[in-house]
Design a protein around this nucleic acid. Structure first.
Lengths: 316, 316
DNA sequence: CTATCAACTGTTACCGGTATCAAAAAAGCC
DNA sequence: GGCTTTTTTGATACCGGTAACAGTTGATAG
């Protein structure tokens, strides 16, 4: 394993010059820079992350905090993680996973990416000493990245209208969280544009809960209805309920999910869904926290990334 | 942040003694050890992982290599990851995720945990310079940890027999991999014990493939049949096929899955399944690779962990 | 009572980088 | 051209640990 010194010798410069080429290239004249880069390349040099972490009093570790029950963890977390990992990798950072607020303080890191934070978590978030960014909308001014939830269900609702479903109903998640309000807002806004009256029901985010809800209230849902669901889980339940009641998908009943990871494919018929750009969200989260760390905790703002409408078999 | 030196001063010993208390406690007399531990506790000392990595020429990073398509990634990987993370945490190691063989060599680490390795991967596995362990059975002598697949489907088959299903059929995954052979072996062995003749079908590991397969061959399956499925995905498809054909679950048809993460709960009826101890597998993987690293790459052998039969609604 | 040895503890040098400041070189100015 | 200012480069001192070896101590043996 070649070291900084090796490269320095090879290029006939001092260690510092090499270090600068890596971290502050603009401080070095182009000629020297080129020399050094060539030397690095010749020797196949890779910086030692532990050494740089030590010298610059960092850890090169970001913690990913998942404040959700492991058993109900959504499959899309895997994609999120991949995205995060990819983003961190590019800066030679590595990752630690944390599942409980109590483990957060254990061991060192340079910053946190936090997901699953609810309104009640803001108490301890405020006490964190390291910079953090959230995955998921919040209205407390914390930096976050999320799918553009509102846009997502605007797309969904618009599509249901375009496909000429007579009645368009929203099946939401029974939680008072910003992402849910945003999705509902997308639905409501779009319906209002056409002077239609919104009808919203809310259930727990479980396929079976959704299924039994629809079955129990089946009489309320006439044919030619499209269900805009706040999650693929719910959509899966709705599909099963319709099938159980003998409704015809997609002819008489349409179903549109939200998430677009895993479940939408396992379902039959495959779900029309709002696909979140999960991998990219992960990557962006990584970039944001790294930047925030580099800028000593400076505010980063909010980022909403547009989702895609994936048209499949559960709508006509 | 207190350092080793701070603790050393507080306890009136040298840095080395403190270091020894942390890494080789048995080399220090109990009295001193106590003194040091108290000092560490008083100061709330946490070792600096970067410094120790640098000094001992390690990186304190383990790479988790996932050789599978991100989109078909099983939800249980999340649990595996949690387990791995937990195991690594305990030794102050952190994690990097890698998805392609080409990224494996990029950046440094002390060892690898590799999953999704197929027979064809052994070529580059042999070339790896750092120690590694595999998640998943293999017959090439590589160290691995896996669920006891054979035992799993012994349990499943035995249960189907106990529940008095007349005919017991295995729906396997259409891949020539050890885990599949082991599951089939568990099924075959148990049936043979009762002088019953095995019937095995194999399909791709997709719910819809399984569904259409069962539908197309529906005439072959008389009532009073239990399907032992090699995965929950397949089980979900089988359940849907039976429902589509109007079969009664669990009275006339039983379905037993394999995995026990996520899908089994989303299904309706909830699946009877062989639940893999995924979290523990992950933890063990972490422990194994850490030990292997500590022992400079010494062989660790194979570990098979027993799964559990979870009895739910898809069997009578 | 001293020599020998084992067991424990301390000293020193170094792991591979980076920050800081000093020195040198280049540029600007009169 | 000489002097000041700015830019570029280099020397040095750490960052917080660990390995290797040296020194100390007490026990055991002769």
């Amino acid at each position: 394993m070649p070291t900084l010194s090796d490269v320095a010798k090879e290029a006939n410069v001092s260690k510092m010059t090499v270090s600068r080429v890596i971290n502050h290239p603009q401080q070095v004249t182009p000629e020297l820079r080129k020399l050094v880069l060539e030397a690095m390349h010749r020797l196949d040099y890779h910086p030692n992350s532990a050494a740089s972490a030590l010298a610059s009093k960092r850890t090169n570790v970001i913690k990913f905090v998942i404040l959700e029950n492991i058993d109900t963890t959504e499959p899309y977390y895997m994609n999120l993680l991949f995205g995060i990992a990819q983003g961190l990798q590019s800066q030679h950072f590595s990752l630690q996973l944390v599942r409980t607020a109590s483990d957060v303080e254990k061991g060192n890191c340079d910053g946190y990416i936090i997901t699953g934070a609810r309104a009640t978590d803001s108490a301890w978030l405020d006490k964190l000493e390291k910079p953090f960014v959230l995955f998921g909308e919040n209205r407390y001014g914390y930096d976050f990245i999320d799918t553009d939830n509102k846009l997502g269900d605007q797309l969904a609702t618009q599509y249901a209208i375009d496909r000429n479903y007579q009645s368009i109903i929203f099946i939401g998640i029974d939680e008072k969280e910003p992402f849910e309000y945003s999705r509902e807002a997308g639905y409501i806004n779009t319906l209002q544009k056409y002077k239609k009256i919104p009808r919203i029901f809310r259930v727990a985010n479980h396929s079976r809960k959704a299924q039994s809800f629809i079955c129990e209230n089946w009489s309320k849902f006439a044919p030619d209805t499209c269900f805009i669901c706040a999650s693929d889980r719910i959509a899966v339940g709705v599909v099963r309920a319709i099938q159980e009641k003998g409704g015809k998908i997609p002819k008489d009943f349409g179903v549109i999910g939200f998430d677009g990871v895993f479940l939408d494919q396992v379902s039959n018929p495959k779900l029309t869904t709002i696909k979140q750009p999960i991998f990219k969200l992960g990557e962006s989260l990584a970039m944001m926290i790294l930047q925030k760390v580099a800028q000593d905790g400076a505010q980063q703002g909010e980022v909403l990334m547009p989702p895609d409408l994936i048209k499949r078999e559960s709508t006509r």
